[in-house]
Design a protein around this nucleic acid. Structure first.
Length: 937
RNA sequence: GCCGGGAUGGCGGAACUGGUAGACGCACCGGACUCAAAAUCCGGCGAUAGCGAUAUCAUGGGGGUUCGAUUCCCCCUCCCGGCACCA
């Protein structure tokens, strides 16, 4: 074995380990029906060119889990692939005049090499790229099945349209109302496109979130908010137009305020607005203005309230009053009915609009007492809660809820829990008792909504209804680099699906987009086809699918034999669902929601046998780095890369003066932020691998912070990780050297009766650290797993060395008996093995190497994961903490089965305890077994 | 505005179901080795007082429950993230 663990050594052993895994097919996954499986999946990367630090973090987390579960005895599947369609390839093509296909495949080749150099336990035989016709064929195939089922359909939508590029722009590509590339004023345009009926699954998508205890709460709430279920009443305002009876439908969640309606507001796109504009040019102009506005929702939210009267009046369904109808820019055509009842007294938007336009405001709700928090506190804590005026008042009025007042509190309690459970958010702020509402006066929210809904229903003018925020998923993109939508447009037959036997519709790969429109529109060979129905010349659809389609089911494809005859096969029944999915929080809604939807569709088509694709989800935090900059006189900012910076520290270790290496003058420190090109604070993982090797990179990334939190980059932290590996190496070298030199038998066995106390203690430390590491691994808290490994190494080093143990060729430091020395040697070897195994998922190369060098086995991957030895953890004596009035006053060693009385007595006998008790009488003694004694005086 | 998550030394972060706050690492300080530096090794390292043993104060702020609170409850401040004319 070589002396030093340096960069070259690391690269050598890493390459050798990777070769070993490759030659042994170590990570090939085969379905074995009876074996427990673990499907570990990291979100596949977009092949942008090279890996970034986020990838390293993401895939290291996945790899640690894959290796850990494998050593725990699971049959592990960890695949990898490429989310290879998308805009960046087109932009690169425009910039470099290279076809997107070539650019993409080149990037894939490079990034694959980088991934391999990190030693991930990936089954590369299952690799897939979504731009491969063999993959996207099944996008097309499933799309056609959806069409048949009515889950996919065609409709005309309003989009951002760049008139110069002749293409649809995503909301993010519209900057200040102009196209990001052309600078042309973006138009709102209605164009036809294909939609997937995700709303048909809204109820299930919401309800099934409960089946996902292994998902982070925040992701689930984000999805729930996105799906946006709201309960309310849909009802109509009748009116007469040109002698005909018509109805203006609206939706409201606040039917209790219906008697406060002073006008109705409709969206600019509402049919009634179009009608009213017919003989009102001013209104027509206003409607045009509204339509031209940005479709970005955030812009809408901040826009000023504007509106115009239509001149049309409708009848209030309950009071019979005449209500004017206004066109208002704050009403969205896409939600509900595109029309609302306006109650300025109890709705903020209506209020602002009414103020702006001089419309009347009528209060119909009296706020209930603002005592909800107080009620909550009283109900929870009873009579003790009287710490505010409000709780005092309530207690005085009703009595103790857990005592005499229980009966009076009953209804209040019931009401409160109902409100709480239904998450009726702003109960005390907004909900209240009806006033000025005729027969509804005195009713609370629930009662009023019930009564009003019933009355509306009786008149045939409305009923309770559930509304969703979720909209159907538009998948048509006027883009080249994506899955072609398998439709042929025929003059006679209309939109004809491409027959299954003609799939895939292959995307021509030699196109070079020039930035103006979709190049497929210029490809006669692609465009012109015969109608599959009538045979007449027809035109192929040139829109491609949203790339989120590609990523909605790739996990199921990995889990199958990737055959040309089936989208997925029986193998997926074995592997699915994904046991652990790992990826960025930025996918919390779109990708994860689409995938859940897609899985349900595939289930309904009999392709998959599960409701949810991902059992457990880990959303890893972003990677941050320090930001350094200097402001120039004009206010511009110049950024400095961290390696161009010199940081001075004061005697306390605080950051002092920060200077640029180039000119030695001061630079400002801007804290930490995400790694970005513009701020020059990115770190290329390749440079890290080149300098230290993969193990150091992996170790640092896992140690620096828990996986869900942000990770702050630190060069000295990386150095620290490398230092730790060097120490492990030296220890391994010491163990090996001793064996070679002394030729001593390594097959020692543990004989507890030969071991001395120090050895017992050392072994106890080792096994309790193992216990901690195991539980942290289970909790996915890898930073403390590393910390446990570091503690093991510290303990090992402190315990002495084999050099001393085997001095002069005989087994023994003369201080100890021969037998005791043998046990010391055993305990060290055992601890080192445990350390290597515990560390192996995180730093697989060095541990693989040392395991073999030291003759512990052929392959550390085949070593079973160790469990702590209960006998080692068992101590005859335990240490108890002694407190007086809850303050630490001393420590106590007692026998492990000392009884309460003995412990109390021993505690009272402590001199320091005496000192603090003094002459005060002892009130009571709290004994927590195995932990502490607290003497209360 | 609504929803979610946070706040612990100079820094990243530990603390199992309420039980020794600050593990582990980084930075910093002192020492050994060295002609010297780096590397390595040994020691120190929350604040205040004290030569010291030790004491007091400390987990964003205020209150509460408890023998005991970083942990549970109430109120407040600040930070981060998501959604946002959703009727």
């Amino acid at each position: 074995m070589q002396d030093k663990y340096n960069s070259d050594r690391a690269h050598d052993i890493e390459a050798a380990a990777q070769r070993y895994w490759d030659e042994h097919g170590s990570f090939r996954a085969t379905a074995v029906p009876d074996r427990p499986k673990y499907y570990c999946l990291s979100m596949f990367p977009y092949p942008s060119g090279k890996l970034h630090m986020g990838h390293v973090r993401n895939y290291t987390i996945g790899d640690v889990l894959a290796r850990y579960h494998r050593m725990r005895g699971c049959n592990v599947l960890q695949p990898m692939g490429w989310d290879a369609f998308g805009l960046p390839a087109e932009n690169a093509a425009i910039a470099n005049k290279v076809p997107p296909a070539k650019w993409t495949w080149d990037n894939i080749a490079h990034m694959k090499k980088q991934l391999q150099s990190l030693g991930f336990a990936i089954d590369w035989q299952r690799e897939l790229a979504t731009c491969d016709p063999a993959y996207y064929k099944w996008n097309q195939w499933l799309f056609l099945r959806m069409l048949e089922k009515g889950v996919a359909y065609k409709k005309t939508q309003v989009v951002n349209w760049d008139p110069v590029d002749q293409t649809v722009l995503a909301n993010e590509q519209v900057i200040d109302g102009r196209g990001w590339r052309t600078g042309a004023v973006v138009e709102k345009k209605e164009i036809p496109g294909y939609y997937l009926g995700i709303t048909q699954y809204a109820e299930e998508l919401l309800a099934d979130l409960e089946k996902l205890p292994g998902w982070p709460e925040r992701v689930k709430t984000m999805q729930a908010n996105w799906i946006g279920k709201s309960y309310g009443v849909r009802f109509a305002f009748p009116y007469t137009l040109d002698g005909k009876e018509e109805k203006l439908w609206v939706f409201t969640t606040r039917a209790d305020t219906i008697m406060g309606v002073t006008f109705c507001a409709i969206a600019a796109e509402h049919p009634l607005a179009t009608y009213a504009a017919g003989n009102n040019p001013k209104l027509a102009a206003f409607i045009e203005e509204c339509k031209r506005g940005s479709v970005m929702e955030a812009d809408l939210a901040t826009a000023e309230k504007k509106g115009m009267p239509t001149g049309i009046g409708v009848t209030h369904p309950l009071s019979g009053e005449k209500i004017p109808v206004w066109v208002a820019n704050y009403v969205l055509m896409g939600y509900g009915e595109g029309a609302v009842m306006a109650v300025p007294a109890h709705d903020e938007r209506d209020f602002h609009f009414a103020k702006q336009c001089g419309l009347p405001i009528r209060q119909v709700i009296k706020s209930e007492s603002k005592s909800a928090p107080a009620i909550r506190q009283v109900l929870r804590e009873g009579a003790r809660a009287a710490d505010s005026e409000e709780t005092h008042r309530l207690l005085k009025e009703y009595g103790d809820p857990h005592g005499a007042g229980a009966e009076k509190w009953g209804p209040l309690l019931k009401e409160w829990t109902e409100f709480d459970q239904a998450k009726w958010k702003s109960w005390y702020a907004d909900h209240g008792i009806c006033i000025g509402s005729g027969k509804y006066d005195g009713l609370n929210y629930t009662q009023a909504v019930d009564a009003i809904a019933a009355d509306l229903k009786a008149k045939g003018l409305g009923e309770k209804k559930t509304m969703w925020r979720l909209r159907d998923w538009g998948i048509s993109r006027q883009r080249y680099w994506g899955t072609p939508i398998p439709i042929i447009h025929c003059k006679q037959c209309g939109d004809v699906p491409v027959p299954d036997d003609q799939l895939p519709v292959v995307l021509p790969e030699d196109c070079v987009p020039d930035g103006s429109g979709n190049p497929l529109n210029k490809r006669a060979d692609f465009l012109n086809v015969d109608c599959p129905k009538c045979g007449a010349p027809a035109r192929r659809e040139t829109d491609t699918m949203d790339t989120f389609v590609d990523s909605s089911w790739y996990y199921a494809r990995y889990a199958s034999q990737r055959s040309d005859c089936a989208m997925v096969d029986g193998e997926s029944d074995y592997w699915m669902p994904v046991d652990q999915y790992i990826g960025g929080i930025e996918h919390a809604i779109l990708h994860l929601l689409y995938s859940r939807f897609w899985t349900k569709v595939m289930r309904d088509l009999g392709l998959l046998k599960l409701d949810e694709p991902f059992s457990n989800l880990l959303t890893q935090g972003m990677v941050l780095n320090h930001i350094y900059f200097r402001k120039n006189e004009k206010g511009g900012i110049t950024y400095f890369a961290p390696e161009e910076i010199e940081v001075a520290h004061d005697a306390q270790g605080r950051i002092g003066k920060v200077t640029a290496k180039s000119d030695g003058s001061a630079v400002e420190y801007g804290g930490v932020g995400t790694m970005s090109k513009s701020r020059l604070n990115g770190v290329d993982p390749q440079s890290l691998i080149d300098e230290y090797g993969a193990d150091t990179a992996r170790l640092f990334v896992m140690f620096a912070s828990p996986p869900e939190q942000t990770l702050e980059w630190s060069d000295s932290g990386v150095e620290g990780a490398a230092r730790f590996l060097r120490r492990i190496w030296s220890l391994g070298q010491e163990l090996e050297k001793f064996r070679k030199d002394k030729g001593v038998d390594t097959s020692l066995t543990w004989l507890w009766n030969e071991a001395d106390d120090e050895t017992m203690k050392f072994r106890r430390a080792t096994h309790s650290l193992l216990k901690q590491a195991n539980s942290d691994m289970q909790k996915l808290q890898f930073n403390t797993v590393v910390s446990a490994a570091m503690k093991m190494l510290n303990a090992l080093e402190a315990f002495g060395s084999h050099d001393i143990l085997y001095k002069s060729g005989q087994l023994g430091d003369p201080k100890y008996s021969f037998a005791a020395n043998r046990q010391r040697a055993f305990a060290r070897e055992e601890a080192f093995k445990i350390l290597l195994i515990a560390l192996s998922p995180i730093a697989p190369h060095i541990t693989h190497h040392l395991w073999r060098e030291l003759g512990y086995g052929d392959d550390i991957l085949k070593a079973p994961w160790p469990e702590p030895d209960p006998a080692a953890l068992d101590a005859d004596e335990i240490e108890l903490v002694v407190q007086v009035n809850g303050k630490l006053r001393g420590k106590l060693r007692v026998s492990k089965d000392a009884d309460r009385a003995a412990i109390e007595q021993a505690a009272l006998a402590e001199p320091n305890v005496h000192k603090y008790i003094g002459t005060q009488p002892v009130k009571k003694i709290v004994v927590v077994p195995g932990r502490l004694v607290n003497v209360v005086v």
